[in-house]
């Protein structure tokens, strides 16, 4: 029973499709993920892989007219898929906090930042105005903002990028949510600020025992912060394991290729690894067979599964398709374009 309550989010067979010229195309295609308490789950992939789609599906913020979500997103036995808006508004900001990529754009330019944080409290607590103010000051202290009383009255444009992101974090954690979704929280920030913000997120998580879904394209950020990692390609999770396994024993060809293309090696004269071809756009995504097959054409079709399934290769290590078994890099696969 104890184990059960540790499970915060259970995403089963999630399909999120966007309408393009009258037809729906799945940007997230049969995604299965879980988030536990005290865990940072990183969803990593390149642009267009569907990682942000998952975030907006969890928190229910999408254009309802042009988006179709099916499957289950279970939060404490409550299915968030298809939940009515007024119930969802009780959960958003209270049980699930969200942090976005661009802190300047994600704050209302004409509202004092303190009031924007207090707004969260207004909708989820019984606090009176003075209590809300005090709580915002407390939050500003917690996220490491100097002179919180002064900061309360500032407008977003008066703050630096790092401070703005701290305000957004204060907003997300104001009601001590169990789940925090951070969608590329440091992409718009300088590297030194990025380090501080990531440290802050980790500290908050340790204090509050929440679970964090960290969505990022940056493998370095994943290696430094994540506990569990899901690698996504073309709308599907292709590999999922704990962070050490992903970086030390990656199996799926895409994960291995991606790690190879990082300019991290000490051998500077070496060319970086390039993945052949390009990521297919949503409309032209192959819907049958292994979606990554086209980008490793030297691997014979017989090595791929007809309908690639996710296999548990070792306990806790999931890999899509069987093509990884015979996968090898090409000798001269260095500069190749399309």
């Amino acid at each position: 029973m104890e184990k059960q309550s540790d499970l915060l989010l259970d995403i089963q067979h999630l399909h999120t499709g966007y309408r393009l010229q009258g037809k729906f195309y799945d940007a997230a295609d049969d995604v299965n993920l879980t988030l536990k308490r005290d865990e940072i789950l990183a969803i990593v992939g390149e642009s267009g892989c569907g990682k942000s789609t998952i975030a907006s599906s969890i928190i229910g913020l999408y254009d309802h007219k042009n988006t179709k979500v099916t499957g289950d997103i279970l939060y404490n036995e409550l299915n968030l898929v298809g939940l009515n808006e007024s119930l969802f508004n009780k959960i958003r900001g209270d049980k699930i906090g969200m942090i976005f990529q661009d802190p300047l754009a994600s704050l209302n330019p004409l509202m004092r930042v303190g009031e924007q944080v207090a707004e969260t409290l207004y909708y989820h607590t019984d606090m009176k105005e003075a209590a809300r103010h005090a709580r915002v000051i407390e939050l500003f202290n917690q996220v490491g903002m100097p002179k919180p009383e002064e900061m309360y009255r500032m407008y977003p444009h008066e703050l630096s990028g790092g401070l703005r992101q701290r305000v957004v974090i204060a907003m997300a954690i104001a009601c001590k949510p169990e789940i925090i979704i951070a969608d590329e929280p440091t992409t718009a920030l300088d590297v030194t600020i990025q380090a501080q913000i990531l440290d802050l997120l980790e500290d908050i998580q340790k204090q509050s025992h929440s679970g964090i879904v960290l969505i990022t394209h940056d493998l370095g950020v994943v290696a430094e912060t994540a506990d569990e990692v899901a690698v996504m390609y073309a709308g599907q999770v292709v590999e999922k394991a704990d962070v050490k396994t992903i970086f030390e024993h990656p199996l799926h060809p895409y994960t291995r290729s991606l790690l190879n293309s990082m300019p991290q090696s000490d051998d500077e004269s070496e060319d970086l690894h390039v993945i052949q071809g390009t990521v297919p756009s949503l409309k032209y995504m192959p819907r049958e067979g292994d979606r990554f097959a086209a980008r490793i054409p030297w691997i014979p079709a017989s090595d791929h599964e007809k309908e690639p399934a996710v296999h548990e290769v070792e306990p806790g290590h999931w890999v899509r398709c069987t093509c990884w078994k015979n996968f090898h890099f090409q000798a001269d696969q260095k500069v190749s374009g399309e």
């Binding site: 390149e46 293309s261 300019p263």
Partner: peptide, 15 residues
């Protein structure tokens, strides 16, 4: 740019 695309551009620049 994305990581694998960045790799491509950097390689071309070097060549």
């Amino acid at each position: 740019l994305d990581l694998s695309v960045q790799a491509q551009v950097l390689n071309f620049m070097k060549h």
